[in-house]
Design a binder for these strands. Structure first.
Lengths: 221, 221
DNA sequence: CGTACGATTGATCCTGATCAAAGTAAGTGG
DNA sequence: CCACTTACTTTGATCAGGATCAATCGTACG
């Protein structure tokens, strides 16, 4: 229940290379910034100045309880939008899981364009609702699934998002996975071994998962 | 882990009194329908024909896993909008917790108006993002809090939404609370007793909670 | 080569689930 | 009006899944 000061280590904000870059489904004007591994993109309470889009890399969006427990709400991959808020400040924090290129669009530009462009405004709304659907699905996982079910769901989700021929390259650590699934690293690790023993997956290296039986994962989830 | 056929009992859809009624913050044209206690408003997989707003009463929005486990994602009170979807069908089910009056607006009317009215479209988007914020907060609860913390959070949430002078009238059963918090009825009940013993609340009747020490709840949450 | 961080494995503990029973309240029908 | 039903809540006893504590193992890196 207690938690030491994890996650205070390598916050190296790197607002380096900046260039104009209209990119992504909703082509938005925005500056591309590179962030190094574990760099903070924005923090809870920061002014919500921009809306962000992943150009490359992986981002984690999370909140931290007063005692240090961390809950990762979502991972974002290339093409995903994140950091959208209603209020003036961010209600979550965001960090680069891997080295990232992030497109930041000033919020004003977003709302201005939304006013002028119906299609864009609709798309903006859809993206919020889509993220809501994702959050709901995740609530289901957190609220009523066992460790085996959670890890299976996670692997299927990753498989859907970023697998190449049945091989998943996980960009995130066991700690990240644990904080995403509401488990501990030990339990995540044990569950991976269990899935390996049962022939559902292979784990040649800790960040590489080979899917042997998606059927097994599906009925476990 | 297993679950009998709970929640198959009294689904009495009551599409009774229908009348024009522009009401709520975003005055939308819509028909008012009354639903009796436990009546289904829409089910997962149903065509998402309408967007709904609570005029009076309480609604639960939930999903059910194949084995019968139920996760209540949110409760909605007077003035709240629910049932907004991106796709063509509802990804959740909704039921009346108490007798309810619900305003149903045809989806087409919503999107047509959103196209014409920027302010409305903005409001629509804000409501989606606000709900997302709620979902995120709830994920934090489900992902990393203990039973005591969950119940305390819940009570504070209810206090904020619908308390009158430090007295909360819970419209929902222990089972609803349990399914909302990812706990069992027994644990919810025990936690209430524990909070009573510690002087944080009083429970004169099972649906009535008197707040004795919000400070206690806050630091427990 | 040695250090350091992340991942795995093992042993034990504890919270909340499960199983079981009794208590309470609100209707219902005689 | 009261006995009876039924649904909901509370309490008790026990169990189990996952957390915690602790040690070891890899693997990348200086």
């Amino acid at each position: 229940m207690t938690a030491p000061a994890r996650f205070t280590a390598p916050y190296s904000r790197i607002p380096a290379a900046v260039a104009a870059a209209p990119h992504g489904i909703a082509a938005l004007p925005g500056a591309v910034t590179k962030y190094g591994r574990n760099a903070e993109i924005f923090g809870e309470g920061d002014e919500a100045e921009f809306v962000y889009r992943v150009r490359s890399g992986t981002v984690r969006v999370y909140r931290i309880l007063s005692d240090g427990r961390r809950m990762i709400g979502s991972f974002h991959f290339a093409g995903d939008t994140f950091g959208v808020e209603t209020g003036d400040e961010h209600s979550t924090s965001a960090e680069a899981v891997t080295d990232c290129e992030i497109i930041a669009t000033p919020r004003m530009a977003v709302s201005r364009r939304a006013e002028a462009d119906h299609a864009f405004s609709h798309e903006l709304w859809q993206s919020a609702v889509a993220e809501l659907a994702g959050a709901r699905k995740h609530m289901l996982v957190l609220g009523c699934q066992s460790a085996l079910e959670r890890v299976s769901s996670f692997l299927l989700e990753m498989a859907q998002r970023s697998s190449v021929g049945g091989v998943i390259s996980l960009p995130m650590s066991r700690q990240d996975i644990a904080d995403y699934l509401g488990l501990t690293i030990e339990t995540v690790s044990r569950t991976f071994t269990q899935l390996t023993e049962r022939g559902a997956i292979e784990v040649p290296s800790s960040r590489t998962i080979v899917l042997r039986s998606q059927a097994f994962l599906r009925q476990a989830a």
